[in-house]
Design a protein around this nucleic acid. Structure first.
Lengths: 124, 124
DNA sequence: TGAGTTTTGACAATCATTTTCACTTTCGTC
DNA sequence: GACGAAAGTGAAAATGATTGTCAAAACTCA
């Protein structure tokens, strides 16, 4: 039996969009796993701490996770219907954010950028 | 006696950064108001619905509000220490987001962009 | 003034997330 | 293979923000 965290990682990897801890828990239980909700949270926490997965917050405040292809800094284009996400890079945005920060005397500037829309399939 | 919602609006306006509902409630009570927490939430909800205030989520999932100078679409440069916020405009980012969305066949594209840093005063 | 409507706030209910704690499993070592 | 420490697990309780309920209070305006 693989370790529980592996199961969570796999469940997350099999999906193409952002998923909440509760979602993943439901999926795993539906697949017959006896995993506990606590463990799902712990696995996600650990993976997000180590940078293996990206986290963001929905408008309702729920945390959603995604296993990305790269661990480098990047952003997402997320479908608001099916939650499928495309990883995007935006050198222009990176520069812009740094510049804005500098202009106002801010140091250690970071930023969050997420783009939402309705994907081709869902808007059909 | 002004209406409760006015009191919330004023409390929010007097502060230069993003504040949580709980913060505002504490402020108002500290000022001697007998306002209830429920009412603070209702006032903030109403104001955010009408676009009078901007809302965003902290990393911890708490909703924070801010009374902005303009109701037009804009973003923020927020100090992660004192939470003071500067309103910023980024035509470049607007264009970039729309473009990215179009490139991937997404429609009705929106975006969230927030820049964080340590302001000049706090990094001193 | 009085009926009807809106606002308010104490309290209970929700819901995601975290903690607690006792129980397993895993591992290195003998 | 056996043993004890350390890490992993999960059920249930605790937390904390937010929302729902409902009766009391304030306001409207004829």
């Amino acid at each position: 039996m693989t370790t529980r965290r592996e199961a969570v990682r796999r469940a997350l990897t099999e999906s193409s969009g952002f998923r909440s801890a509760q979602d993943l828990y439901a999926d795993l239980r539906a697949d017959g796993s006896k995993i506990g909700l606590t463990t799902v949270y712990r696995a996600l926490q650990a993976m997000s701490d180590s940078g293996e997965v990206d986290v963001l917050r929905t408008d309702e405040g729920e945390a959603v996770y995604r296993a990305c292809d790269t661990e480098d800094h990047h952003h997402h284009l997320v479908c608001r219907v099916c939650s499928t996400a495309v990883e995007i890079e935006g050198p222009a945005v990176e520069r812009w954010a740094a510049e804005i920060g500098a202009q106002h005397g801010f140091t250690e500037v970071t930023h969050t950028v997420e783009v939402f829309g309705t994907c081709a399939r869902c808007s059909a």
